[in-house]
């Protein structure tokens, strides 16, 4: 007992991780709640079955057959009792299996029931980041961002999933289950957050070297905050105000950056890497890898392969005095 108790305590320690922003057990949306309920129902039913079976087994082990008993002798009363016990056990097993199966089907109906929502997003999985396009019936209100989704609380949001290279899987554990993003087809999933907060998502299908660093965050906020954010994201980048940032912009425009990145409102129009129009307003850079600070931006530009080995961002040649203006220009793109 003296050894078992610490071991049990140690085993319980990982449970502490279940309360964070990326946890199935920390359900904050209808789909995730359904899944969490299913999880707890399955765990409790199956745990009960396991405990009962173990008790029966232990009793059977403890109860010895009398020494002089004849193994072939039959007793009609015992025979009848055995038949009843076994029939009940089989009946209960069937009942458990059938009701759990029925429950799973019912839960699937809830999970894949589509409600009409005002907001539709196109999320494209790429090695190793998420491209997010907010669709709108007015073309001038469509905008693209990366790795950060904002949604209004309490509203269903439809997410169309595509992939531009290999199979990825969109998974925000606190809001919904997984859905694959597959090349050449479009999958759909609906997310809804019932409480404001920041939830982390992660690619859940191994997609290459930096699969582990392919995160995204979902920010659920009030309708007013969301609309303010959306208006700000639709707008073009603010021109740099001071001299240093002006120089940073010139450096950005004269380097290979513009081959891949877009900054709306400037000449940079590449579309194969994350849109940087409002990169400073996003909480993380490099798909949830580094917090957006000037230092991290500089570190990322100078040596992307030190942070994410094998990433598709190349090492570009910069003079030492070019790093600081470039980083402060990008940090200032709020």
């Amino acid at each position: 007992m003296r050894r078992i108790a610490p071991a049990l305590l140690l085993l319980c320690l990982p449970l502490g991780g279940c309360q964070h922003w990326q946890s199935v057990l920390n359900a904050r949306g209808p789909a995730a709640s359904t899944l969490a309920h299913m999880f707890w129902i399955f765990v409790s039913v199956l745990a009960t079955v396991w405990v009962l079976t173990m008790i029966a087994l232990l009793l059977a082990l403890r109860r010895r057959r009398p020494e002089d008993a004849d193994p072939l002798a039959t007793n009609p009363t015992t025979e009848r009792r055995m038949t009843i016990t076994i029939s009940v056990a089989i009946g209960l097993t069937l009942l458990t299996v059938i009701s759990l199966t029925g429950l799973s089907y019912a839960a699937q109906k809830v999970l894949f029931a589509h409600k009409d929502g005002a907001l539709t997003l196109l999320v494209t999985g790429q090695q190793w980041w998420w491209k997010i396009t907010y669709e709108d019936s007015q073309p001038n209100r469509v905008f693209t961002t990366a790795n950060e989704i904002h949604i209004p609380v309490g509203e269903p949001v439809l997410i169309k999933l595509e992939s531009s290279d290999v199979i990825h899987s969109f998974w925000v554990p606190s809001l919904t289950g997984k859905m694959d993003a597959i090349t050449g087809r479009q999958n759909q999933i609906q997310i809804q957050a019932d409480r404001p907060g920041i939830y982390r998502g992660q690619c859940a299908e191994y997609c290459g070297l930096q699969h582990a660093h392919m995160g995204l965050i979902v920010v659920a906020e009030s309708k007013e905050d969301f609309e303010r954010w959306r208006e700000q994201q639709i707008s073009s980048a603010i021109p740099p105000g001071d001299e240093e940032r002006q120089r940073g912009m010139e450096i950005f425009m004269s380097k290979p950056c513009i081959m891949c990145h877009q900054i709306r409102g400037t000449d940079a129009g590449g579309k194969i890497a994350p849109d940087l129009t409002h990169v400073g307003s996003r909480r993380y850079i490099a798909a949830g890898t580094l917090e957006t600070t000037r230092g991290n931006i500089a570190a990322w530009i100078v040596d992307p392969h030190g942070v994410k080995p094998g990433v598709n961002m190349p090492t570009i040649q910069l003079e030492p005095d070019e790093v600081q203006p470039l980083a402060s220009y990008l940090e200032g793109l709020k």
């Binding site: 100078v302 040596d303 392969h305 030190g306 080995p309 094998g310 990433v311 190349p314 090492t315 570009i316 040649q317 910069l318």
Partner: peptide, 9 residues
């Protein structure tokens, strides 16, 4: 040998 990191200088 996969050389991801080109020499920056």
């Amino acid at each position: 040998d996969r050389e991801y990191r080109a020499n920056p200088v």
